[in-house]
Design a protein around this nucleic acid. Structure first.
Lengths: 121, 121
DNA sequence: CAAATGGTTCAAGAAATATTGAACATTGCG
DNA sequence: CGCAATGTTCAATATTTCTTGAACCATTTG
């Protein structure tokens, strides 16, 4: 399971791909939770998101997020640790992620954005 | 042709709908051009966008943009004049539209964002 | 080595979106 | 009124995206 997971370089990150990722409720919830726990834990594992959907469906969304350049995934043992590519996103699209996250936070209830519980690493 | 075109109120504008609109190349091009000519002409007509796609396809995208709250459409004679709902968007999602437009401008070539020619009102 | 853990991949089906062309509606004009 | 101009709507199709479950793979653990 340690096949190389393809990540775009910073320069390869495209606006439409990012916007598309953030327009899907499940992916927005993933990014939202990733951002929310960013300072504390930094990275999260796939299993932390099982509240959102089934395993294989999540794998699909993770791949989209990774391929669009929103997050970075690294394999550690049997797990995968994921984190937001904040700096890359900020560099390519200044202010965009923050604006989206702030709006998401404000509308969290309305958007039914779940705040997940995370296992301690 | 003057049936009432439904517009959401400011409060009804939802983040996913807006993001989804901006993730489509045609709709992004529409918004981009709308923003670009905003100061000069303010409003644009459907026909100004015929370079992007066919009439009926554009009508479909216009409806999406309108229903998502990105633009306002008013009927004037046989034409429709459209403009960005800048203030409403800024109020609901501060900084979002500007961040998207700035990134789109920077990547205009790469995204092949066409700058259309507009008929004088 | 065998089994458990944590995820990915694949194929299939469901559902949502986008695109097209033809028909229709409204307004403006001679 | 009759016709042109400007868009919309509808139905059909094409395309894309999402979702699910089963099979699979790699890593750790006993």
């Amino acid at each position: 399971m340690s096949r190389i997971l393809p990540h775009p370089t910073r320069e390869q990150i495209e606006l439409p791909g990012v916007m598309d990722c953030l327009s899907d409720p499940i992916r927005l919830a993933i990014v939202y939770n990733l951002a929310k726990r960013e300072k504390e834990v930094g990275e999260l594992r796939c299993g932390d998101f099982y509240g959102l959907s089934g395993k294989s469906n999540l794998a699909y969304h993770f791949a989209k997020l990774r391929e669009a350049g929103l997050m970075e995934t690294r394999a550690v043992g049997t797990a995968r640790l994921m984190k937001l590519r904040r700096e890359d996103l900020e560099s390519r699209f200044p202010g965009l992620l923050d604006a989206v996250l702030a709006s998401a936070e404000r509308d969290a209830e309305r958007l039914q954005l779940p705040v997940l519980e995370f296992t301690e690493a």
